[in-house]
Design a protein around this nucleic acid. Structure first.
Lengths: 137, 137
DNA sequence: GCTTGACCTTCCGGTGACTGGAACCCTTAT
DNA sequence: ATAAGGGTTCCAGTCACCGGAAGGTCAAGC
């Protein structure tokens, strides 16, 4: 198969597949015309990577996962460790985003959003902490 | 103030501040020795940007927010629109990550994580959908 | 006056995982 | 012969910086 077909079947853009070859994730053969020739195994590999990427695994993780997949003597614990690590990274990211979201939602809630210039969002960004010093217990 | 002091007071690395100058977010003066000279306004601007960045706003958003901040005839609606847009982007990202997280957590749950090679995580990545064709209604 | 060390400068390259585009080659159909 | 629709390489750009090299500046101590 040429790169166009493999792109369609794997769901990956041709550009990405060329990139994956460049970094050694896949190693298609070459025809006499210089075109890449992919077989079903290449397709399988690419689909594997596409799936792993869609779960947020980095390229190096993909490499490690491919190695584990190829290793029949692997321990599932090693795979699980990778996955758990990835899960942890995702959780961290979600946590950060959630914190941003909460703050931002709060600011949005308190902004009138009309034609007047007064804006608690800008006040917050400008370092106005919202403490008004009215009640100093 | 030199860049070191401003870095400390703004919480931004000196590298970042130089970068912000390069892209026109801040425009400190220069001393005879070529050193950047920052004043309190520069500090305020940098702190503003730092806060906006911490809420996930991109550099261009920061520029827009700074412009709005400087514009006394601004409408808070414009600020709110920017913030809501950003909130939406964050929500999208959270949604994607949450979907990843759910899938990944499910896979991790089903993996024994022992010394045996059988691994539902790898099976999933390899395209085994989990459908076993046992019950074809 | 000289050295030391902390600070500052610019410039270049790298990050991650691609994406866009230019310039050119190959194949097939008309 | 030519045109369309593949394919190829290579270079630059993305985003928001970070690390490091090579060198200038400044204050303190000897």
């Amino acid at each position: 198969m040429n790169i166009g077909q493999i792109a369609e079947r794997s769901g990956l853009p041709a550009k990405t597949i060329r990139y994956y070859e460049e970094i050694g994730l896949v190693a298609p053969q070459r025809g006499d015309n210089g075109y890449r020739r992919f077989n079903e195994q290449d397709l399988h590999r690419l689909a594997f990577v596409a799936r792993a990427r869609s779960l947020g695994f980095g390229i190096d993780d993909c490499r490690a996962l491919l190695d584990l997949y190829a290793d029949r003597a692997r321990a599932s614990a090693d795979v699980k460790a990778l996955a758990r690590h990835q899960l942890q990274r995702i959780d961290e990211k979600i946590g950060e985003l959630q914190a941003m979201r909460d703050t931002l939602a709060d600011l949005v809630d308190h902004c009138a959003g009309d034609r007047r210039p007064d804006c608690p969002i800008l006040q917050d960004l400008a370092g106005d902490t919202g403490a008004q010093g009215l009640t100093v217990d």
